[in-house]
Amino acid sequence: MQTAWFSKPVAVSVGVTGSIRHLSNTQQAIELLTTHWRDAGSPKHQSALRACRRATSGDVAAEIAREALVEAAREAHILVE
């Protein structure tokens, strides 16, 4: 497995205090998606997790995973735009 880097970090608000995290690659995204996700199990969450895992194995481009992550974060109301 390889770390797939995004062209631009994805900023999300996490935790009770809403601290901002800038996710720069698929490993960071997978960690957040599997441990600290507000709407875990939603279709967009599952799609983002699947896309990030596929990007780490080289099956899809990092930008596809990034877009899926952005959509999931938007759905979960944690995307910082």
Rank of each mutant, 00 (worst) to 15 (best):
R66A: 01
V70H: 02
A51F: 13
E31K: 09
T56M: 13
V80N: 05
C52L: 06
R38H: 04
R66C: 01
S19C: 13
E71L: 13
T35K: 06
C52K: 05
H22I: 05
D59Q: 12
E67P: 02
H45F: 02
T34F: 00
Q28F: 03
G41D: 08
M1Y: 08
V10S: 13
T35P: 13
T26W: 10
T56W: 05
A48R: 00
Q46P: 03
S57G: 01
S13A: 14
T17A: 11
S19L: 11
S42W: 10
H22K: 15
S13T: 13
A4E: 07
Q2F: 10
S57T: 05
S7V: 07
I30S: 04
A73H: 03
R74M: 06
A68S: 15
P43G: 08
R21W: 13
S47M: 08
I20G: 02
R74Y: 08
A4Q: 05
L49W: 07
N25K: 06
V12Y: 00
I78Y: 08
Q27G: 08
G41Y: 03
L79G: 07
V10E: 13
R53H: 03
D39N: 11
E81N: 11
A76E: 14
A40S: 14
A76P: 11
H22Y: 15
A62H: 07
R54T: 04
D59H: 10
L32Q: 10
S47A: 13
A72F: 06
T34K: 03
T17V: 09
D59L: 14
D39W: 07
R66Q: 03
A65S: 05
R53N: 12
V16Q: 12
V12I: 14
A76C: 10
I64M: 09
L69S: 00
Q27V: 07
T3S: 14
T26K: 06
A65W: 02
N25I: 02
S47E: 09
R74C: 01
R66M: 00
T17S: 11
I30Y: 06
